[in-house]
Amino acid sequence: MIEVKNIKKSFDGVEILKGISTTFEKGKTSLVIGQSGSGKTVFLKSLLGLFTPEEGSIFFDGKEYEKLSTAEKRHLRTEMGMVFQGSALFDSMTVSENVMFPLRMFTNQSVSEMQDRVDFVLKRVNLVDAHHKFPAETSGGMQKRVAIARAIVMNPKYLFCDEPNSGLDPKTAIVIDNLIQEITDEYNITTVINTHDMNSVMEIGEKIVFLKDGYKAWEGTNKEIFKTNNESVSDFVYSSDLFKKVRQVYLRELEG
């Protein structure tokens, strides 16, 4: 479980996060949504320890991140998996080497043990023929799956995804969403996803945190988001006619 208490972060005097508190539970897929510039990426990078908040605390299973020693922080990092928006695969390594990287760096496994683990996770993300390809030779969807495989290869306790569906076609986006949801359930990990994709919100948002101008404007589940009276959330989520109609149909069904 990740507990965030009143975190604030500024850059060059401009306050990006203005005191956000929330909780991300184990075994659940939590989504952070909001307009561009609302502070989602800064929030996610603060959770990852890439940015240090000026105020507030982040607790990982009860342990406050800032109070951990360097060695403990390093250990905690090995329990985190991250899927970056652009996948962030190492260009000079093959798919197999990319996935094996954390194992080579942090374990003393033999080559065959590492290869078995790589084969297992690549199979888990439905990539069986891409071992020897370089990232540049694979499609955007394949790169995302490799990034997920690399993120889960160390059996992380926490999985973070920054816009995992950006640049993907709707069908591939659903495949990626389902994959993240399945992995979260299967390994009972705490998953936090930054997204703009309303389909993800409706499908896998077991918890949704809506950020606006650096504040947490709303939080709830994908069921509650249909019924909310919060104007900020409604304006953002139901900005398209299609989603407005979907909402009306859903609410009519509930009333009926």
């Binding site: 990852l48 922080k73 991250m82 970056f84 652009g86 962030a88």
Partner: peptide, 17 residues
């Protein structure tokens, strides 16, 4: 610089490298 732009350096840091 390209590794920085494409978040590969962030990926290393997140892994604890």
């Amino acid at each position: 610089g390209t590794m920085r732009v494409t978040e590969q350096i962030d990926a290393l840091e997140v892994m604890g490298v």
